[in-house]
């Protein structure tokens, strides 16, 4: 397992500037969880001390953020610089990456669901709106993936009007926090040709009736 653990440890170093700082400070116990030969330990110490290690840690962040941004662009835009502590906490929890963007985003969404306090801290009074926006964006991405499986329809409920959230996301947390709250439902119709979103207040009898967005298929 030595080579496998060496590669896992080098990946962990790229994921964690804190681990790099620990090694630079001589706290070699951060490698205790890996099955390493003395040469491999020395190589990881050398890697931590390398001038390029900061760039390697930054590149890791660029790559992982790009994956989340491909699926959740509006959520990340709404959070702005507040996304930093959220993704750092996520990457600490899940240092290894899933090259597939949708499962990677799904892990991030699940992580935030398990840690609502992190989103509350990052988004402040807009936390509920961002939480809804996150769920909507992920539901849309998942519906795009499902287009191959044929026709389907799902209805989910939100505290904010979905179209208002999608439109206001780029304006940032202040604008999201000021959106009127309510009780809304979103129906996503999935078909081989693409997806269609309909929204409406929950209290209205029947199905949501206002079309939000209609997109052609992304996968064929």
């Amino acid at each position: 397992m030595s080579l496998a653990d060496f590669q896992r440890a080098l990946a962990a170093l790229s994921a964690s500037p804190q681990m790099v700082r620990d090694l630079r400070a001589g706290r070699r116990s951060v490698l205790d969880g890996f099955d390493l030969s003395p040469r491999e330990r020395a190589r990881l110490q050398h890697a931590a001390n390398a001038p390029g290690m900061a760039a390697q840690c930054s590149l890791y962040r660029i790559m992982r953020l790009a994956a989340l941004n491909a699926v959740l662009p509006r959520t990340l835009a709404a959070l702005g610089s507040a996304v930093g502590p959220l993704v750092e906490a996520y990457w600490t929890s899940c240092p290894l990456h899933d090259l597939r963007f949708l499962p990677e985003a799904e892990r991030f969404v699940a992580f935030l669901k398990r840690h609502p306090e992190l989103l509350a801290h990052a988004a402040g009074t807009a936390a509920d709106a961002v939480s809804d926006l996150l769920r909507i964006e992920f539901a849309i991405a998942r519906a795009h993936r499902a287009t191959l499986r044929g026709a389907a329809s799902t209805v989910t409920r939100y505290r904010y009007r979905p179209s208002a959230l999608l439109e206001a996301a780029a304006a940032g947390l202040g604008v999201l926090a000021a959106l009127p709250r309510g009780r809304f439902q979103l129906r996503i119709e999935t078909a081989p040709a693409g997806i269609t979103l309909w929204e409406g207040p929950i209290d209205t009898a029947g199905q949501p009736s206002t079309m939000v967005i209609s997109t052609r298929r992304a996968w064929s």
Partner: peptide, 24 residues
């Protein structure tokens, strides 16, 4: 290398890493 042997199956490093130029 990108694929990393991890508990629960292989996952990826988040970026491509160059190995030492060893015979192994």
């Amino acid at each position: 290398f990108m694929e990393i042997a991890a508990p629960g199956g292989a996952s990826t490093a988040g970026l491509a890493l160059t190995p030492p130029f060893d015979r192994q």
